[in-house]
Design a protein around this nucleic acid. Structure first.
Lengths: 335, 335
DNA sequence: CTTAAATGCTTAAACGATAAAGCAAAACAA
DNA sequence: TTGTTTTGCTTTATCGTTTAAGCATTTAAG
């Protein structure tokens, strides 16, 4: 097996000390007063032997790994995939590498991932926390490693956080449905303790209340999303006064719901208007393109990296809260 | 700033050498004949100080990083997102961590990522190579780090590879369209040198030829997918003998195409049958659910990790080729 | 009662890179 | 000529962990 070239190999070949090689290859020749000829020679040998610095050794020495840990809730969901992509891009632009893991909405997996990433000496963490991970986050605060939450957060834990105004976004979406003449607006959301989802519910409820309308909230669980979303829709549509619009709290819920709506042959938007949180390519493909709340993924990802790097560089402890505006993209499904 | 606990801290507190602490905490007490009492004491202190081993130092010593590098072509595509997820799961099951990057189908980014990951001393690499990355792959072979390709490959470069029989899958899909009475079957594929895509084209062409039908192949470029896919569809539908079926070479192409088909108000499958490679949630949401070729993502991801770990462990150099069967999921869009 | 073996720990070197400090020799100033 | 700078390189310590080798004691064996 071929072995990797180290400073030692180059030093040997050049007949000098490893220190000298290090000075040259990290461009500290000036400071270290290395002879021009020797510098040239060393560089040439490095090139010849295809030297690549050992980042691990460097990290051990410097105490920094130039690595960010990223834990997403579910990498197979394009929403999180896109967040991951923007974070990776922005990290790379700042010469950081991303180590990632997907907790798959599983508390134990999330805990394991945090431990693994910390052991790998990441310089910081970006988390999309799982339901029930409050304790893990509190534990994290006792560690010296800075971190930021994105998308989801826990209002009672003071940490840096990047997100949107879930309440307002929901409120606006429902206001739009009311303005377009809908009176019996249902919502399908997760049964969860996650604050961002509950803010969405609150936006829905208040918008209805402010217009003298009653709530028709149905809950589904992530763990049994298919069945329970179908039940929720059945409930919304039954009775003498069925819903004339439905608001989905996430793209996953909307996709499950729309599949069923399709099966039932319900006409959107005539029989039922539809609005969803989040984006999805599937929304474009529905025969009546779905009105949705667009989250500023790019801005969120970039902000997360920016805030994290600030914390890394400054040892900053003051939590920073960033709230970015959403956009209601109105299409055929709600007209 | 709180600092992390090291072996030294524990040793100091216990009044022993770091070596002893290391023996205890890596469960080598037997071998190192450590006293039971002392072992207990050390463990207790470690717990108290919340000791977490420094993986970087460990790696430097051992020469292994227990890390796999993963480069996907585009993490925002759920197909790759799902592959990433299964790879990460399977790696974790084997106590490996995944460092990932998305090349976004960009040759330069792909090269950068390879360099970064190698510098981070990954023990192995899993790649979904970008178009035109033959040289990068050839360079990789000169490195001591083992790697496997997944999804895409270069037939002229002998490396380990996990994939499907693209030719056969295509051939079967087209046969199905022919059997269901379609005569003028178009295909929309990428204009690319990527072998797996060209195999899909070949399957299409041969299936048609074997049934005495003529090819209606249209090409679109990834870099301008929206416009060129629309043009392709326009071309397929114009003239006196428009296509009665269309076969998309990937999910991205299908999604772009279906958006346009929706806009044009074309009836699927009556006016135009549709079959696509790959899976997508959007396919379920189309009013006429799309027939598609399901790739065995789970098996592919697991196989990639398995083969890579074999190479890592055995220093194996014999390339291994794994080909997994696909499944044609027939639905309304092609009946 | 001597010798050998087992016990319980420490020392020291190593992984690869970095960087402060040190040391000759050459160049310059007075 | 003597002393000071400058130049060009080496020595050495360090990051945190691992592990072979070493060194006293104690215990067991003969």
């Amino acid at each position: 097996m071929k072995k990797k070239t180290s400073l030692k190999d180059i030093a040997q070949e050049a007949g000098v000390s490893t220190a000298l090689v290090s000075y040259v290859l990290t461009n500290k020749e000036e400071k270290a007063r290395v002879g021009q000829e020797m510098a040239k020679k060393i560089r040439k040998i490095a090139q010849k032997l295809n030297y690549q610095p050992n980042h691990i050794a460097r990290s051990l020495k410097s105490g920094r790994s130039d690595t960010i840990g990223l834990i997403v809730a579910d990498i197979s969901n394009p929403f999180f995939g896109n967040i991951a992509r923007t974070i990776e891009d922005e990290a790379k632009r700042n010469n950081y590498t991303v180590i990632f893991g997907s907790s798959d909405e599983n508390l134990e997996k999330s805990g394991d991932l945090i431990t693994v990433l910390l052991n790998r000496q990441v310089d910081g963490l970006i988390l999309i926390p799982t339901e029930g991970s409050e304790q893990q986050i509190k534990q994290l605060r006792k560690q010296p490693v800075p971190f930021v939450l994105i998308d989801r957060y826990f209002p009672q834990i003071p940490v840096s956080q990047i997100g949107i105004n879930n309440f307002q976004a929901s409120y606006n979406a429902i206001s739009h449905l009311i303005k377009t003449g809908h009176q019996r607006i249902g919502m399908i959301a997760y049964k969860t303790t996650l604050h961002h989802i509950n803010e969405r519910k609150r936006g829905y409820t208040e918008a209805l209340a402010d217009n003298g309308l009653g709530s028709m909230m149905k809950l589904s669980r992530y763990s049994n999303i298919r069945k329970e979303t179908r039940q929720a829709i059945d409930q919304l549509l039954q009775g003498r006064k069925p819903a004339d619009a439905v608001f989905f709290a996430t793209n996953s819920l909307a996709i499950e719901g729309l599949k069923y709506i399709n099966e039932l042959g319900i006409k959107v938007p005539d029989e039922l208007a539809v609005v969803s949180f989040d984006e999805s390519e599937a929304f474009d493909l529905f025969y009546s393109p779905i009105t949705f709340i667009r989250q500023p993924i790019l801005e969120m990802g970039n902000a997360a990296v920016r805030v994290l790097l600030e914390h890394i560089r400054n040892g900053e402890k003051k939590p920073e809260n960033i709230c970015i505006d959403t956009e209601l993209v109105i299409r055929k499904s709600s007209r």
